[in-house]
């Protein structure tokens, strides 16, 4: 047994690949939170305004749709590309575990 693994709560007991995955998990949850706040705030402020028969439009669609959905969607795509190309690390998925013989 790896000596540092006696305490499951210690950082040292966990493998490097697992800790990297955990960091990426937190980044993804942060991403969700930021976009959830943006879209909810923008929608709450703009989407319920009754335009009657003369709606304000941007790119041909109701303007609230652009600010609440279209723009965040575009930025989300840019962020996803950056995350996948720059922030996410590669891992050898087939590397043997400390006790692979136990599988």
């Amino acid at each position: 047994m790896h000596p540092a693994m006696s305490d499951p709560h210690s950082r040292e007991s966990l493998g490097a690949s697992f800790r990297q995955s955990k960091r990426e998990l937190l980044l993804m949850l942060g991403t969700w939170l930021v976009f959830a706040l943006w879209i909810t705030a923008s929608g709450s402020l703009l989407a319920f305004r009754d335009p009657g028969e003369n709606p304000a439009t941007l790119f041909g669609m109701p303007s609230w749709v652009v600010y609440t959905v279209g723009l965040p969607w575009l930025i989300a795509d840019v962020w996803i590309i950056f995350f996948a190309l720059r922030l996410m690390k590669d891992t050898d998925l087939d590397a043997p575990s400390p006790d692979a013989h136990d599988a």
Partner: peptide, 16 residues
């Protein structure tokens, strides 16, 4: 459009 907006980050959250 608002109802489905979550799909904008599904690839990063769901796969990630």
């Amino acid at each position: 459009a608002w109802w489905i907006a979550g799909y904008s980050i599904v690839p990063i959250v769901s796969l990630g």
